[in-house]
């Protein structure tokens, strides 16, 4: 009896029809509980005014209508320019560094690789606090000392729009440079050496080899990195939080997620915060789709 039961159970798990479902079940469950449920709940919340514990009222699209305010548009602008600058820095710079690291003539590769990758392992808050003090306004802080070497006067970095953005982008670069280098390195190593040899025989110089062979071959990696950078840029929060907590002076460093956090927790307006979240989702999706279409991701091979 017992044996029979065991056997039927075994055959159930072994059958080619059910086995795949058994294997994916943990993921599906996780996905349903941790992604789909909160997502649906957020959509529902975004149409509610939440007053307090067990005290909720349906208000339709009012939360979305409230989004048309200067704070939100300012946050959208800040976030977009942050994303733009991080992509401007974090695509070319890691490509160049990866090319150097991939060059057989480079010495101490492993040291540079790990040194560049190390920052990615620190917590954003720890790194953020370090940078917060580096960008402090006393003449003795790290950044003010550095600019002092170039004859510049110490300045208040975190209370002006331009310098504040610079501080955010520098922090982001410091943290993510190594990760992007790894992506591009793996892309570089996938390029067959023969192509370079053939090009060399045809008389192509290093410059041409880089622009005609390396860059086009890296395109899939570049598309991937841009896509995750857009997502990462628009969901940026911790960096801004580490610099200013929740009250960035004059909203200079307030990103969309900071705004969401502020509305949700500072003002305890969870419904409105949910509406910001849903709007952010659609903005990021839209931008990603445009970018992918622009970069030819949806074109079929050979077209």
């Amino acid at each position: 009896m017992n044996k029979k039961k065991k056997a039927s159970l075994l055959s159930f798990f072994n059958s080619p029809k059910t086995a795949p479902y058994v294997f994916v079940a943990p993921f599906i469950l996780f996905f349903l509980v941790c992604y789909v449920y909160p997502f649906i709940k957020t959509i529902i919340m975004s149409t509610q005014q939440i007053f307090g514990f067990n005290d909720v009222e349906y208000i339709g699209f009012n939360n979305y209508r409230r989004l048309l305010n200067p704070h939100f548009f300012n946050a959208l602008k800040t976030t977009s320019s942050y994303t733009f600058w991080t992509i401007m820095v974090l695509i070319p710079l890691p490509i160049i560094l990866a090319v150097f690291l991939n060059n057989p003539a480079t010495k101490g590769k492993n040291f540079f690789k790990s040194a560049l990758f190390m920052p990615a392992l620190t917590s954003v808050i720890v790194a953020g606090i370090f940078f917060r003090y580096s960008f402090g306004e006393q003449p003795t802080t790290l950044v003010n000392t550095l600019v002092g070497f170039f004859g510049m006067k110490p300045r208040v970095w975190l209370q002006e729009r331009g310098p504040a953005m610079l501080a955010l982008v520098v922090l982001c670069t410091w943290r993510w440079l190594g990760v992007n280098i790894i992506y591009f390195l793996s892309g570089l190593q996938a390029i067959p050496q023969e192509i370079y040899e053939a090009a060399a025989i045809d008389g192509a110089n290093a410059w041409n080899r880089f622009f005609r062979i390396t860059l086009p071959s890296l395109k899939p990696v570049i598309i991937y990195v841009v896509t995750i950078s857009i997502h990462g840029g628009y969901s940026m929060f911790a960096e801004s939080f580490a610099f200013w907590q929740t009250h960035t002076p004059g909203d200079i460093g307030m990103t969309i997620v900071s705004y969401l956090y502020q509305m949700g927790f500072n003002d305890f307006n969870m419904g409105f915060a949910a509406a910001i979240g849903i709007t952010l989702l659609f903005i990021v999706m839209l931008i990603n789709l445009i970018q992918l279409a622009f970069m030819g991701f949806f074109k079929k091979e050979g077209n």
Binding site: Q159, E160, T248, P249, G250, D251, Q262, N266, D267
Partner: peptide, 14 residues
């Protein structure tokens, strides 16, 4: 929040 972020900053600093 508005006093911190906007009023004091825009009128006294920026």
């Amino acid at each position: 929040d508005l006093l911190k972020k906007n009023v004091c900053f825009k009128a006294l600093r920026e």
